[in-house]
Design a protein around this nucleic acid. Sequence first.
RNA 1: GAUUCCGUAGCUCAGUUGGUAGAGCAUCUCCCUUUUAAGGAGGGGGUCCUGGGUUCGAGCCCCAGCGGGAUCACCA
Length: 527
Amino acid sequence: MTKALIFWDVSYATDFIFAEIFFMQLNEQQIQRREALAELRNLGIDPYPAELFEKKWTSKELKAGFEEHPDDYQDISFAGRLMRKRIMGKASFAALQDEAGILQIYVNRDELCPGEDKTMYNTVFKKLLDIGDIIGVKGFLFKTQTGETSIHVKELTVLSKSLNPLPMPKEVDGKVFDAFTDPELRYRRRYVDLIVNPQHRETFKKRTRAIRSMRDFLNDQGYMEVETPVLQSIPGGAAARPFVTHHNALDIPLYLRIANELYLKRLIVGGFEGVYEFAKDFRNEGMDRTHNPEFTQMELYVAYKDYRWMMDMTEKMLRQIATDVNGVPQVKVGENTIDFGQPFERLTIFGAIEKYTGIDVSEMDEDELRATAKKLHVEIDKSMGAGKIIDEIVGEHVEHNLIQPTFLMDYPVSMSPLTKKHRDNPNLTERFELVINGKEIANCYSELNDPIDQRERFESQAELLERGDDEAMFIDNDFLRSLEYGMPPTAGIGIGIDRLVMLLTNKSSIQEVLFFPQMRPEKAKSS
RNA sequence: GAUUCCGUAGCUCAGUUGGUAGAGCAUCUCCCUUUUAAGGAGGGGGUCCUGGGUUCGAGCCCCAGCGGGAUCACCA
């Protein structure tokens, strides 16, 4: 509909607003705001001006700067969203919110309108401006009788008229009234959440800080940030169900990547010795508070290293990130304080099971494991092999005990088709998972670089696929061909960025650390 | 996918055994020149999520659906 308004004039726009009121189901406040919009145009004020507005300072900078050098702030301009308006006859207080915070403005009728014409104050400011509008002001800083730094306004510019009323939480003595807390609305209208709940901006700033810290750390080590395909004809590198799409020109199915592992390893074959990517991966599986269909993983591959080296590197990197995000290496998560400053505990799978159940399963065959699982009340079914049973026991009896960062090492070979066999025990692999606060945060292994072994592992995955396991891996012949040219021994790791950020920001839901978590589509409805 | 709870004004929420739909804030009109949840006076605003059913009568009871939260399963 708005396309029809490319060549508009005031009367046409006004007619349009009435048409909109008529056809859309607008509530009273939305109608009033549209009427105010038309009124502004009638007064010759463009509610959406094209010209830039000079904003040299943030609210925070103005407040801090005024404390230091009050004389430097006698001629300033500032802009933000109108969040509060209190009219007291010929003078008013209002507050403008910008990215850094909120700053009060003082608007005096006779100073805003020194001449006879008081329209700017009486009509525009008092009547036509609403909470949520974006305005610019010019004037000088001063302190009110109650000591609040405020802008004494000499000039006011409408920068953007807001047509939807905002929810308005109010806080007094630490108690919040009318909070905008409904998770559905907060996620669906994240922009509103960010406006009225500025504390949630902090979560996302921390997310950005964490990613920047990780990227800086990796760059400092000399690793190269790369980009690999999201659209893959063979989705590989993880056990998961992919999203399928179709390429019209090639007339082939394409899959959204579930991991980028196989491409990064091709780059190691190609001669790069350290590559990493912050990768959006996509998995067509259930959603809950720790799973979103698209999520971010940082994968890193370093040539001539092994998983033991990667443990040291990971520990150092996370310590740095935790400190960069929160100022200290400790972070409070729920009831627990996670300490990234201490050396991370290192437990083998078998050692961990023995530690938390008292049972040594390291020499057991599948039947003995089955009996042990039963004794430990771990639910298993017939399709599970020895490796899977061990994994279930770990999930039930070990993981939730691991609050402080812990490397769980040396997984059974059947669960890890891309991992090198353990140097000391052919039934195990050189693999670790990093568990923090009972949740898996990272997964790492010494990469399998024996092309013949890799082909065999793929083939046993293919058998699983035939048997109906829709998460088993596809055979990627080009990847095998690349290994046949020779890949140096390599350590690789994937770190779940969303989960790491959940930890660092003490959030129990992935939706809180994603700007726009996946939601069912909204049913068509105006406003 | 399973279980369970929730859906009432722009926002946050009450709503009795089933008997004309409520409050605070926001909004509108008026008063008020340094306010701090500003204040004072007055007014308007509802598809009670949707569709069926029971009933003389349903926001309330029953059934189905839609949307969301929580827990569980799968998974990172």
